[in-house]
Design a protein around this nucleic acid. Structure first.
Length: 424
RNA sequence: GGAGAGAUGGCUGAGUGGUUUAAGGCGAUAGUCUUGAAAACUAUUAUAGAGGAAACUCUAUCGGGGGUUCAAAUCCCUCUCUCUCCGCCA
């Protein structure tokens, strides 16, 4: 959420930012009109309340002294009360209009973000590692997995539907190995591990920005005010909702393993087969709560931390800076890490690292308190470290052998207990 | 699932309709005293909004929402959450 005071001061800057984000039809004049209305009503209400309180005290005093008070006085107070109540209702309506407007407004992109309407304007920052040269035609991960008997999409669609997977045999061990490996690496860098519920209430969903804008993206429980999390970012970031953190506690770095659930509405044909885009997938999420002045630097550190995991796995990847048109709703600046998939000869997203600045903190009311007692909204960042299913897929494609077997990356072997997966 | 008890500031805890401007305590911060520290003493110690150049003033907020009343932390309804007991249960 953006600050209406900031919008008021810099309407033109905010307007341009929205145009850069492909949101052209934002009526800021209407917003400011509502804000004027809000201030006017508040003024009227307060004037009346002062009078009402004074008159009411008068009644109290008279009664204490055992004196008479006129019924005219009471009816005058009653009338004031009715007027106040009427205006309070009007105020609520106006405030809700403003709030809805602001909740549906995306974050302002950072100045360093390339301006463009889609992913074509993204900027490739660097390549790390070189794709392996194959002496045979490399296969897709789902073909490899099914042939090895570690992935089963037929059973998954029987018990759940499309965009689900069942892991079997060494596949289960590999999935668990990846999870443990990621957690250990990040914990070694000072991240605190946490495990959270996968079902959260609506307030939490609004806090991180999934709602109200993206209702169709998330799974909702029909009979309860509960949603399946689409990322662990939601429960983790909400830990500190309505909190003031002392400066000395920052930065807070949290790592969490969770299953994630996404409806993937509107992505019908895309990545229909395999592990890339499923309704349920595992992910390790990194979240940082930082002092505002450090957030730019913390984002750069974050992509190094995430990238190093890929380097340890010896998977080639590249870092891409997303353009204004390709960024997520809440983000001010996002880098994607894209890993190489040999089966399709393409780099594909495996992690998205964002600086939200104070956008989420304002929705959630999370502040930092400095030594001099000054308080301000803090900054939040997060990144996948990494998506487990996509890592699984990347390993199959990049480590496949001509005979159909898959070699396990060296760093994972102590977790899996085996070096290679051969077809049975 | 059944029965009961609760929710008050950073924490603890009083407050059963009107000097409550939310007592007292703890903690924290600053000052006085001290060579330094402790102790003692003094002061400060919530959030949001409106107005103002500013000092500051005002309004609202006692888990959320609604109601009764001239007046609500206090009475009534309702929701959420916590605790205790019973039942069921991996």
């Amino acid at each position: 959420m953006l600050d209406i005071k900031v919008i008021r001061k810099n309407v033109d800057v905010v307007k341009q930012a929205m145009i850069n984000r492909n949101k052209r039809k934002v009526d800021f004049d209407q917003l400011l009109k509502w804000d004027d209305e809000r201030k006017f009503i508040i003024n009227e209400i307060e004037k009346l309340r002062i009078r009402r309180n004074k008159e009411s005290e008068k009644v109290g005093r008279l009664k204490m002294e055992g004196k008479e008070y006129s019924s005219d006085l009471l009816s005058a107070i009653n009338e004031m009360r009715n007027t106040i109540q009427k205006q309070e209702k009007q105020l609520l309506i106006t405030e809700n209009k403003i709030r809805n407007f602001l909740l549906n407004l995306p974050n302002i992109p950072d100045e360093s973000v390339p301006i463009g309407k889609d992913e074509k304007s993204n900027k490739i920052i660097r390549f790390v590692g070189n794709p392996r040269k194959f002496s045979f035609k490399p296969n897709h991960h789902f073909e490899i997995g099914e042939r090895l008997g570690i992935l089963d999409f037929t059973i998954a669609s029987k018990i759940s539907g499309s965009r689900f997977v069942v892991l079997k045999n060494e596949g289960c061990a590999l999935e668990r190995a990846i999870i443990s490996f990621f957690l250990d690496v990040h914990k070694g860098r000072g991240y605190k591990e946490i495990m959270t519920p996968y079902l959260v209430n609506r307030t939490s969903m609004v806090g991180t920005g999934q709602l109200p804008k993206f209702e169709e993206e998330v799974f909702k429980c029909a009979n309860d005010d509960l949603y399946l999390i689409s990322t662990a970012e939601i429960p983790i970031t909400n830990i500190y909702r309505d909190s003031i953190l002392d400066e000395s506690l920052l930065p807070q770095k949290i790592v969490s393993f969770s299953a994630c659930f996404r409806r993937e509405a509107g992505s019908y044909g895309r990545d229909a087969k395999g592990l890339i885009r499923n309704h349920q997938f595992n992910k390790i999420e990194l979240v940082k709560f930082v002092a505002p002045k450090t957030s730019d630097e913390e984002l750069e550190v974050l992509i190094l931390e995430v990238g190093s995991v890929l380097e340890l796995l010896e998977l080639p990847y590249r870092v891409v800076l997303l353009s204004t048109g390709d960024m997520g709703f809440s983000s001010a600046k996002t880098y994607d890490l894209e890993v190489w998939f040999s089966g399709v000869s393409m780099y594909k997203e495996i992690s998205s690292c964002s600086n939200f600045k104070d956008f989420q903190a304002r929705r959630m009311n999370i502040k930092v308190k400095y030594k001099d007692k000054r308080k301000e909204l803090l900054h939040t960042l997060n990144g996948s470290g990494l998506a487990v299913g996509r890592t699984f897929a990347a390993i199959l494609e990049n480590y496949q052998q001509e005979d159909g077997s898959v070699v396990i990356p060296k760093v994972l072997r102590k977790y899996t207990g085996f070096d290679i997966i051969k077809s049975c």
